[in-house]
Nucleic acid binder design. Structure first.
Length: 918
RNA sequence: GCGGGCGUGGCGAAAUAGGCAGACGCGCCGGCUUUAGGUGCCGGUGAGGAAACUCGUGGGGGUUCGAGUCCCUCCGCCCGCACCA
């Protein structure tokens, strides 16, 4: 579709006076090949050698989240990697040592699914995809150090991961336990808490079941306090992401209370524990407790269920229901009496019934609570349903204790304590302290902080992942694989014809000897969650070929990552895991002192596009299948082939399922990488969503041609300069705006100043706007009565050279080509970023606004930094000011240098007085 | 419900530190070039008004000589979390 347009452009250029035309295909290929060749020639030496050879310069580690090798890049990738590339090229031009690598998050389920579908081995599938995607990324002209490329499925990579795991094991940071886990019936695997969204698997969308399995866990909870506290120090992280992590870690302070279990009924309670622990953030409301509740998965409940059929039945029901409904608020609370009675810790005469309730979560606190219906909405809902007592103990301000009652809304706010014995009269805050104190005195409780964060379950029952390096021995139990046997490689010869884990069927591979007793033993058939690989890949880039260790000490000079760029969707998963893993690696001695892996984080917006649906069938159509009406038919859309009516839906994130995708390959082929990059960076601020548009890409393409034309003009001027005819300089066409060489020089220096700051702050849209502005200025700079054509030509040349240098990080191919065309020395990549001259950038003349009582009445030209008296005098001379002042008396004049003169008058000539006058 | 963000022309957006709102672009309109134009170039483009001028940054109020920007309040949209005791 876009070919049509391109052909026209070329024809036109051919027909015009231009000697050459802009052919992105030729140019981009030329430069990309050259860059790769140069890179290959600089043989990659180890970090140890490098650090000895190279003089120490400032470093920048620029990293974009590495892609999953699906086989094709999408627009999100294009945006992500373009953003990083601008920074990498910018800092290189500013004489930083820049690390800008790329790798592949190569393990994961899609490879296995593909294997199932196409009988292709995951390894082959992944490798082919990587090759295809590498080519696509290279066609974008990214300044990436391909000599450092890594793929996480490479045994040379995961060998270190297995080694790290053994360290974690030794340090007690990895452990195995039987636990309730999230089971995705579609993926036939366990999911981490973080991978369950609204009760469904994050990828499969299948409703997740609860199962109890033996699993490997990473003790991320050990670092909860540090992970939380250190967020405050991450100044270059978006507030949003920090908030999400804070919520996820979920610190809450309260107290632990032990309730004595009473042998109430005739149940066999001898084997039961003596006490039940509950957690509460509101111990002040302890006298409002009318019952207690525990989770169906609570150990005590499980114990009781062994002999209590009603309970057993309820537990079964609750677990199957647990994730069936995803909207928590709509869930009807239910429960069943456990028949256990608990003694109130501060009132021996009160016995509280213990219920098993589905609204109490085993994952949080102790899995049991005391319920205070008057002051907790959930408890109240439950109490009303089962006709339990509601006893208010907190009196809101301004209410009367004799009349205050709870109906269907619990009072969860502060107040004064009532009906609470020794707490009576205290404020909520003081009552909390006092209650904890009293419980502590009685040995029935203590202050306690709980965390929402759970340990990270890393076992996955899948083939295409990193094998967990442990051996199961019937005699010795779980034994770590000896380090010298690493890597434990995945077996090649496995079958994918059945669902389930192929490793379990790989009998030969499983068979091994116990390292400890040498008897027959079996390998663990689980593999790691792929988030384990992505938790340290950024470290490996620093020293990607080191076989002895994951990262040498010298290589750590690159750390931390200075600017990390990716989507917000990883705000908690990957970014939290990586923060944990880095700390764990410091603990295990792999890292010396780096605690925070990502100094700066930037979360880019999504790439969006309108959706198109066939009016009748409601089937989605790709944008390239849709014909847009023109003129009067402007807002009508039809199917290009069938002519059927199409409805245009709202703009949404590009996704395969809605078909609102534009393939980067076709854009790069038809318009070129520079045009695609230009469009990506132009209009929307990088953190905001970007609306893809065909017109937008055409606009960017148009600009490429314009740049080309300016270069041609400048070259022509240069050549004709000798014969003194003014042919080289275009005659004044009907341009309204004409710049003098002096003004162009000023604009150039201002551009250097402003654009440098914009790039540092990732305000690329602003930078591009200013670059376009400078291009306009170069075109508007013309011979005038006060400037000779030589002066104009010289200044245009200087300005254009500067424009190319400033533009290079954004559109690297065309700028290099034009640089060569105008005889620039070296290549742009080897040319240092320009510096600006404050003197030359500063305005000599400024326009001041003149206001009367804050209303703009005139504008006047004055020399920069002129004095107040001069400005005031001139302001008062302005015709329009005179007219508006009339006979009004001036009260005072406010003067802001180079900005404004505001004349404050008693009363401006009002319409009233004006009316009177007439 | 809790937490975070956003609201500026027809559209994407600019606007140091409170000082000429709308830079830069898309679209649209006009002109020139063109056999032709979904090409290129030149010009115009917030609204109202003949003009002077008035009105305009989600609504209302406030601080100030002066508010898109600061404060209060309300409304709307987007995102995240959500039975967290």
């Amino acid at each position: 579709m876009q070919n049509y347009n391109n052909k026209n452009l070329k024809e036109n250029l051919n027909a015009g006076e231009c000697n050459t035309r802009y052919e992105h295909r030729v140019i981009e290929k030329k430069w990309q090949q050259r860059w790769l060749k140069e890179q290959a020639q600089q043989k990659h030496s180890s970090e140890v050698e490098q650090s000895e050879q190279k003089p120490k310069r400032k470093k920048k580690y620029i990293l974009e989240m590495f892609p999953y090798p699906s086989g094709n890049i999408h627009m999100g990738h294009v945006r992500n990697y373009t953003l990083g590339d601008v920074l990498a090229r910018f800092y290189r031009a500013n004489n930083f040592d820049v690390l800008h690598p790329m790798g592949w998050d190569a393990f994961g389920l899609p490879a296995e699914n593909a294997a199932l579908e196409h009988q292709e081995h995951p390894k082959t599938w992944t490798k082919n995809n990587i090759d295809a995607m590498r080519k696509q990324l290279q066609s974008m002209g990214l300044d990436i150090d391909w000599t450092r490329e890594i793929a996480t499925c490479n045994p040379k990579y995961y060998k270190h991961e297995q080694n790290m795991f053994l360290d974690l094991l030794e340090k007690g940071l990895a452990y195995r336990k039987k636990a309730w886990v999230n089971w995705d019936p579609s993926e036939n695997s366990v999911l981490a808490n973080e991978q369950v969204i609204d009760g469904k698997g994050w990828r499969s969308g299948a409703i997740v079941e609860k199962r109890k399995l033996a699993q490997w866990f990473f003790r991320i909870t050990q670092f909860a306090p540090q992970l939380l506290a250190a967020l405050d120090g991450l100044e270059k992280w978006p507030e949003k992401v920090k908030t999400m992590q804070r919520n996820w870690i979920g610190k809450s302070q309260g107290c632990l209370i032990r309730f004595n279990i009473k042998k109430q009924q005739s149940e066999k309670v001898e084997t039961l524990p003596k006490t039940l622990e509950v957690f509460s953030t509101r111990p002040d409301t302890i006298f409002g407790a009318t019952f207690c509740a525990m989770s169906p998965n609570h150990p005590l409940c499980e114990k009781l269920a062994e002999t209590n059929e009603e309970l057993a039945e309820y537990v079964k029901q609750a677990n199957s229901k647990a994730n069936a409904q995803n909207n928590a608020e709509d869930k009807e609370k239910s429960g069943v009496d456990s028949k256990i009675r608990l003694e109130h810790p501060l009132d021996k005469n009160t016995l509280l019934p213990l219920f098993v309730c589905d609204y109490v979560l085993m994952e949080y606190g102790t899995g049991a609570i005391f319920a205070c219906p008057a002051h907790d909405q959930r408890d109240l809902d439950f109490a009303r349903k089962y006709k339990l007592d509601v006893k208010p103990v907190v009196l809101p301000k301004g209410k009367d204790s004799t009349t205050f009652a709870i109906t269907d809304t619990a009072w969860v706010g502060d107040g004064t304590m009532i009906h609470s014995k020794f707490l009576d009269g205290l404020t909520t805050e003081k009552a909390i302290t006092r209650a904890i104190q009293k419980l502590q005195e009685n040995g029935l409780g203590e202050k306690k902080t709980t965390w929402r964060l759970r340990d990270w379950g890393v076992s996955r029952q899948r083939y295409w992942g990193c094998p967990i390096p442990v051996i199961h021995c019937k005699k010795c139990g779980v034994v770590p694989a000896p380090r010298e046997t690493l890597p434990i490689k995945l077996p090649q010869d496995v079958s994918f014809d059945k669902p389930g884990n192929p490793l379990e069927r790989a009998k030969e591979w499983r068979k091994t000897k116990c390292p400890s007793c040498k008897s027959e033993a079996e390998r663990d058939t689980d593999t790691f969650d792929t988030f384990v690989e992505s938790s340290w890949y950024f470290l490996r880039f620093c020293d990607p070929r080191n076989e002895k260790q994951a990262i040498a000490k010298q290589a750590q000079r690159w750390l931390p990552v200075d600017q990390y760029i990716g989507g917000v969707e990883h705000a908690i998963l990957h970014l939290l895991y990586a923060r944990f893993f880095t700390r764990a690696l410091v603990e295990c001695g792999h890292l010396t002192e780096i605690v925070e892996p990502f100094e700066g984080l930037f979360t880019q917006g999504m790439v969006c596009h309108a959706t198109y649906q066939d009016e009748k069938s409601k089937k989605f159509l790709f944008p390239h299948q849709v014909k847009h009406g023109r003129g009067a038919q402007k807002n009508t859309y039809t199917d290009k082939i069938t002519g059927a009516k199409v409805i245009r839906g709202r703009s949404e994130k590009m996704s395969k399922s809605k078909k609102n995708i534009v393939d980067p390959k076709s854009v790069i082929t038809n318009y070129g990488a520079d045009t695609a990059r230009m469009f990506m960076l132009s209009d929307s601020p990088p953190e905001r969503d970007l609306e893809w548009s065909g017109d937008g890409i055409k606009g960017a393409a148009k600009f490429m041609h314009r740049l080309w034309r300016i270069a041609e003009d400048i070259n022509k001027e240069k050549k004709t300069q000798g014969n003194k005819s003014k042919d080289g300089i275009q005659e004044n066409d009907e341009r309204t705006k004409i710049l003098s060489p002096n003004e162009l020089q000023r604009a150039t220096h201002q551009a250097i100043r402003d654009i440098t700051i914009d790039i540092e702050q990732l305000r690329f849209n602003r930078a591009i706007a200013k670059l376009r502005s400078l291009s306009n200025d170069i075109e508007d700079c013309q011979k005038t009565s006060i400037a000779t054509s030589t002066e104009v030509q010289k200044q245009r040349e200087v300005a254009f050279a500067c424009l190319l240098r400033l533009f290079n990080p954004f559109i690297p191919h065309i700028t290099e080509e034009l640089w060569q065309k105008i005889d620039g020395e070296n290549t742009l990549a080897e040319t240092t970023w320009p510096s600006f001259d404050e003197e030359k950038a500063s305005e000599q003349e400024v326009v001041l606004a003149v206001q009367i009582n804050g209303k703009m009445r005139a504008a006047m030209r004055l020399p920069a930094n002129c004095e107040q008296t001069i400005a005031e005098k001139k302001a008062l001379q302005q015709d329009n000011v005179q007219r508006n002042l009339g006979e009004a008396s001036i009260k005072k004049i406010i003067f802001v240098p180079n900005k404004i003169v505001n004349i404050i008058v008693e009363r401006e000539k009002t319409s009233e007085t004006a009316a009177k006058a007439s």
